[in-house]
């Protein structure tokens, strides 16, 4: 059973700043979980503690019930870094970088075997970069750069994958490709944790959410955690809300309101604060369930008035 666990993790940087205090979390396999918080809320810090790059000042991390050190030895966890953390001028090709995912299993001279080459080719094809394999990594677009590191995580064939802001500075096509890939991995039973500050895309592909702001505020299934109250707590004043009640949208607009945004997907919440999804298809049950509840509420209210 795949598990990822943080127990009361506190991280204080040498500068004296405590980026994370008493953060506790437990996730288990076959999930895509979003880690949502404003910039500076400690998302990367939590990732680095989970990966064992940082040793928590207090608290501990365990992976599949074992200490981080053992998880590292076994390459249980793959990490897709934030784009800013990579030196793109390095003289390495796309193929070289993806091959780095395979070093864990090679002998100490790191000479690739046929199986390593096959895994690298398969990963590159899966993210659509096989044709660009000989490019120096700096010669790629933003979206392609991100996909190189996703391919490396695939090549590592780890069942737990952490992605730090994979959608920042990425075109819509790449975003959809990565999301499709993550869904496939979830279907294969992987445990995926994705940090993002883009609320809109979360309900579309994440079944769980962790809200973070210097500590873990709450976590659980997306429709339970993604409430206006929780989000306001996590984001403080940093959220922009568009409330239909207070807007000039009127009854004659019916449901014909169009919401456009540039790169960030809008998060749309219904009248009672529940999540609205982009596609009605496949969620008919959810919609009729809500209508049922509304009708029951109305009936109860009417009943009360008649009494």
């Amino acid at each position: 059973m795949l598990t990822l666990e943080a127990n009361q993790v506190t991280v204080t940087y040498p500068s004296g700043l405590t980026a994370l205090r008493d953060a506790s979390l437990r996730l288990s396999g076959g999930t895509i979980c979003a880690l949502v918080g404003v910039n500076g809320s400690g998302k990367s810090t939590l990732f680095k503690s989970l990966m064992g790059f940082l040793t928590p000042t207090h608290g501990s991390v365990s992976i599949n019930g074992r200490p981080v050190r053992e998880a590292q030895k076994q390459s249980w966890v793959a990490y897709v870094p934030q784009a800013e953390e990579v030196d793109w001028t390095f003289p390495v090709s796309v193929h070289d970088v993806v091959m780095m995912g395979r070093y864990g299993g090679m002998n100490f001279l790191r000479i690739p075997r046929a199986s390593d080459r096959a895994a690298v080719e398969q990963s590159l094809r899966r993210v659509g970069l096989w044709d660009l394999r000989d490019r120096q990594i700096g010669e790629l677009s933003g979206g392609q750069k991100k996909r190189v590191f996703v391919a490396r995580a695939l090549a590592q064939s780890s069942r737990i994958i952490l992605l730090d802001e994979p959608f920042t500075g990425v075109d819509v096509k790449t975003e959809e490709a990565i999301i499709a890939l993550l869904r496939e991995l979830r279907a294969e039973g992987c445990l995926i944790l994705v940090s993002t500050h883009n609320l809109g895309s979360v309900p579309e592909f994440c079944d769980q959410v962790v809200l973070i702001n210097r500590t873990i505020l709450c976590y659980g299934p997306t429709d339970e955690v993604f409430t206006p109250e929780n989000l306001t707590e996590a984001f403080g004043g940093a959220l922009r809300a568009f409330e239909f009640d207070r807007s000039t949208v009127e009854a004659h607009d019916d449901r014909q309101v169009t919401v456009l945004t540039d790169d960030e997907r809008p998060l749309v919440l219904g009248k009672r604060g529940h999540l609205e999804y982009r596609e009605r298809q496949g969620r008919e049950a959810l919609v009729s369930e809500r209508e049922e509840r509304e009708r029951a509420a109305r009936a109860a209210k009417n009943g009360a008035q008649e009494d």
Binding site: M51, F53, Q72, K73, S75, Y79, P81, E85, Q156
Partner: peptide, 8 residues
């Protein structure tokens, strides 16, 4: 980071 993730 990758080196650590692979236990190097």
């Amino acid at each position: 980071a990758q080196a650590r993730a692979l236990g190097r």
